[in-house]
Amino acid sequence: MPALPFSRSEYDRRLALTRKAMEAWGIDVLVVTAPAGMNWLTGYDGWSFYVDQAVLVTPTGMPFWWGRLMDANGARRTSYIDEDHIIYYADRYVQAAGCHPMDDLADKIRELGHGKNRIAVEMTAYYYSAAGHKALVEGLPEATIIDGSGLVDWQRVVKSDEELAFMRKAAKISDRVMSHAMEIAEPGMKKNRFVGELMKTAIDGVDDAWGDYPAIMPLLPSGADASAPHLTWNSDEFRMGEATFIEQAGCYRRYHAPLSRTIFFGTPPDHMKAAADAAVA
């Protein structure tokens, strides 16, 4: 049995919330394809969401993990799901012409006795493709397939005490990263070296809170580039008379505490001081 991040009672709580929402929506089977949702429901934590995979929630019993054959061991090593609820498709389906992994999922859903039921999928999930949806609909002609986007997300909004403890650990990492950023930043320092230091600090973590990989890379635009959001880094040097904002999230076991800070080398202009005062207020 893998060492789960949370207690089984915490996972039971999450599953009960999800099933209550499914009942309210009139859903018999929920197909969860968002990586965060799969992790939240089962503990599954594999960096393989670039291929089709899902967690199937039915009205009773343990959820099913479904994915690529080689990823099934990831489900065994990171989730609480029993062996008979880990189902998979052959690797020959991956990026193959003439077939799609969702063909297999449709077969599996019929085998589980839900081929004529009301099935919800996450139409807005990043890794749920148009081709996959087409294959699933065609493979389940007698089922009613609806959009269940947001159902799991809304159950995740209010955090449990166990989750808050993780988020506080992530926040300690974020604090340490930004403190280190202020310690080492100086004019003439190349941004890629600066980011390397920050990422090392984030992964090293704080005390017993080791750093996990974040959902987004450090963002580091300077000067006019700071007028655009979400620019990462390059090999430019920090300059006097220029502002840079730094966005980075400390992350502990998939839980994030994003933080943004702005640095300015020299004397900042009055309008920037006023903006800083307004932000603090």
Results as ranks from 00 to 15, higher is better:
31 V>M: 09
85 H>V: 04
261 R>T: 06
65 W>E: 11
266 G>A: 04
197 E>M: 01
170 A>E: 07
127 Y>N: 12
181 A>P: 03
54 A>E: 05
71 D>I: 01
247 E>G: 08
168 R>K: 14
183 E>V: 03
220 L>E: 06
120 A>T: 05
149 S>G: 12
236 D>S: 02
169 K>Q: 09
78 T>W: 10
126 Y>I: 12
203 I>S: 14
28 D>R: 00
33 T>W: 06
52 D>C: 14
58 T>F: 10
54 A>H: 07
127 Y>H: 12
248 Q>D: 02
217 M>Y: 05
22 M>P: 07
90 A>P: 15
51 V>F: 04
70 M>W: 11
174 S>M: 09
104 D>V: 02
30 L>W: 06
263 I>Q: 07
172 K>T: 03
138 E>I: 00
22 M>A: 09
49 F>H: 07
247 E>A: 11
40 W>A: 12
179 S>K: 14
160 S>F: 09
18 T>I: 15
107 D>M: 15
178 M>Q: 09
81 I>V: 13
216 I>G: 07
67 G>E: 07
247 E>F: 11
95 Q>N: 12
176 R>M: 12
61 G>P: 15
273 K>Y: 10
84 D>G: 01
142 E>S: 14
26 G>R: 00
234 N>Q: 07
244 T>E: 03
261 R>N: 00
225 D>V: 01
11 Y>A: 09
30 L>A: 13
89 Y>K: 03
214 P>A: 13
133 H>K: 08
14 R>M: 09
66 W>P: 02
33 T>Y: 10
264 F>A: 01
17 L>R: 14
20 K>L: 15
202 A>Y: 04
244 T>S: 03
214 P>G: 02
116 K>T: 11
63 P>D: 09
250 G>C: 10
203 I>T: 08
70 M>I: 09
2 P>Y: 09
45 D>Y: 14
165 A>V: 08
211 G>L: 00
218 P>K: 08
192 N>F: 04
83 E>V: 14
71 D>M: 12
139 G>N: 04
218 P>I: 05
201 T>Q: 10
224 A>N: 12
24 A>K: 13
56 L>G: 03
223 G>A: 06
52 D>Q: 12
114 H>R: 05
139 G>T: 02
242 E>G: 08
6 F>E: 00
121 V>Q: 00
149 S>K: 00
28 D>A: 03
122 E>T: 02
32 V>M: 14
110 R>C: 08
36 A>T: 07
222 S>L: 02
31 V>H: 05
62 M>I: 04
115 G>E: 01
100 H>D: 09
39 N>K: 15
56 L>H: 00
96 A>K: 05
123 M>D: 13
181 A>Y: 01
47 W>T: 12
278 A>I: 09
201 T>F: 02
98 G>P: 01
39 N>Q: 11
79 S>K: 10
87 I>M: 15
250 G>M: 04
187 P>S: 07
13 R>C: 15
255 Y>E: 07
111 E>P: 01
246 I>H: 01
272 M>Y: 10
65 W>N: 05
258 P>E: 04
52 D>K: 07
8 R>S: 14
118 R>H: 07
210 W>V: 12
124 T>F: 02
40 W>S: 13
